[in-house]
């Protein structure tokens, strides 16, 4: 597969998993984790990606109680897996001012939140599952996360993400 073709395919996939409404480059309206979860649950519901926002909110909270989703470098990757999720998606929330992300395990200031909404059977969504794995794996790559944080708009985010993930494109589309 030619590199330009794979990058275009990945850009399309990135835009499907993170549609424009789920890319928020300058969030200011939430200051706590609970506010954020409520906001995103409602956003996913109003965009037709969930059938019930309260069920997804509960799934997010239950996952937080199981183990930390807080990473280093001001990042968190909360995720909820529930039958109320109609389509796997990734919500990108970037903050100019970091807020205190509290968990049962530790607290830290966070300015980048990547929130995954997952249906219970990711086996039926292999391409999306592989995309999520590749995205998560690259979160240890500082140039990847900095590139996301400096993305000015949705298109730039999709382009940056697809360029970074293009090295593992065969694992995303073909496995």
């Amino acid at each position: 597969m030619a590199l330009s073709q794979t990058t275009t395919q990945l850009e399309t996939l990135a835009a499907r998993i993170t549609p424009p409404a789920l890319f928020m480059p300058n969030m200011t309206n939430v200051t706590t984790k609970v506010n954020l979860f409520q906001f995103v649950s409602n956003l996913l519901y109003t965009n037709g990606l969930l059938i019930k926002s309260s069920a997804f909110m509960n799934a997010l909270v239950e996952r937080e109680e199981m183990g930390p989703t807080l990473l280093q470098d001001g990042m968190a990757i909360p995720h909820g897996q529930d039958a109320c999720v109609l389509q796997p998606s990734l919500c990108v929330c970037l903050f100019e001012t970091a807020f205190l992300y509290e968990t049962p395990f530790s607290n830290a200031l966070v300015n980048k939140v990547f929130l995954f909404s997952l249906p219970p059977t990711m086996e039926y969504h292999p391409v999306e599952a592989n995309y999520f794995k590749a995205f998560s794996t690259n979160l240890v790559n500082k140039s990847f996360t900095q590139g996301i944080h400096t993305s000015m708009d949705h298109r730039e985010f999709c382009r940056h993400t697809s360029q970074t993930l293009s090295g593992g494109v065969n694992q995303i589309f073909l496995s």
């Binding site: 930390p68 989703t69 995720h79 997952l118 794995k133 998560s136 794996t137």
Partner: peptide, 19 residues
């Protein structure tokens, strides 16, 4: 291992390889 196998476990696996 993590619950879903698509989020934290992948970050942790990559960090483990590096460490």
């Amino acid at each position: 291992a993590c619950g879903s196998g698509v989020a934290t476990s992948n970050v942790a696996a990559e960090k483990l390889k590096g460490a």
